[in-house]
């Protein structure tokens, strides 16, 4: 069974600064010593990031892409798992 952390919605962690220009997102985690280099998300990653920022759930994210729904879903879960592990996003407060 999927946990809440994997089905969304999520929120961008408040320590993350990010910009979305054209078809890419550049982000950096703001934490001492504040020398981290930005990370760039291109194409699919940028679409996912922006959709997550808008509060989309896993089911809603899947609808942004064409192709085999199960395969798309697995790819999104991989992405979400990765950014969750990095502390870049967290589960949205559902209260």
């Amino acid at each position: 069974m999927e946990t809440i952390g994997r089905t969304g919605p999520w929120v961008i962690d408040e320590s993350v600064a990010w910009v979305h220009h054209d078809d890419r997102v550049v982000l950096v985690k703001l934490a001492p010593p504040f020398t981290a280099l930005p990370t760039r998300l291109d194409a699919t990653g940028a679409i996912l990031w922006s959709a997550i920022a808008q509060g989309e759930t896993l089911d809603e994210l899947v609808t942004n892409f064409e192709g085999d729904p199960d395969e798309v879903r697995r790819g999104i879960i991989d992405f979400v798992t990765n950014v969750l592990a990095q502390g870049l996003i967290g589960p949205a407060d559902r209260s």
């Binding site: 320590s15 990010w18 703001l30 504040f34």
Partner: peptide
């Protein structure tokens, strides 16, 4: 833009 956020948080 990002450097503004970095400096503000620092």
């Amino acid at each position: 833009h990002l450097a503004h956020a970095v400096a503000a948080r620092a």
